[in-house]
């Protein structure tokens, strides 16, 4: 039996793959890498692309990762996959968006908030109307 290593592909939202493999291929930041068992300790960022896991019978499994980290130890390979497409400017935009939301909310201009308040007021008005109607009926009797 050929030597194998353990391969774990995990993302923040769950484990994607776990098992023995004879070879792992991934697109690292500096180019494609092939990792065989007993590879020396190695760590790299991954570019979006394919991660191929080959078992001892030569069968390949493909996983798409949108970036992440590859950590290699002699008997264990771990792919820490991103679930989102990451880029500095995208992150920046998301941060600005979060900030803007906070400012909007504090200014009290958020449409959703107004909606919630209006809903409560409407419910109160309906309840009042109902109470008045009941009173009328009781008097009318």
């Amino acid at each position: 039996m050929a030597t194998t290593m353990r391969v774990d592909i995990v993302s923040a939202e769950g484990a994607i793959h776990s098992g023995a493999a004879a070879m792992v291929y991934a697109t690292a930041e500096m180019g494609e890498v092939g990792i065989a068992p007993r590879h020396t300790a190695f760590i790299s960022r991954l570019k979006p692309g394919d991660v191929r896991v080959e078992n001892e019978h030569g069968e390949q499994e493909h996983f798409y990762v949108s970036g992440g980290m590859l950590e290699v130890q002699p008997t264990v390979v771990t792919v820490l996959a991103d679930t989102a497409i990451r880029a500095r400017d995208l992150d920046e935009a998301a941060a600005l968006e979060a900030k803007r939301r906070a400012e909007d909310a504090l200014a009290g201009q958020s449409a959703k908030f107004e909606y919630a308040r209006a809903q409560i007021e409407l419910a109160e008005a309906v309840a009042q109307l109902r109470a008045i109607e009941k009173l009328r009926k009781m008097k009318g009797r």
Binding site: A12, T83, A84, D91, A95
Partner: peptide, 15 residues
């Protein structure tokens, strides 16, 4: 919840 929805919010704090 998805992690990409949290990235911006976390980044604001980390920045």
């Amino acid at each position: 919840p998805h992690i990409e929805e949290l990235i911006g919010t976390v980044k604001v704090m980390l920045d």
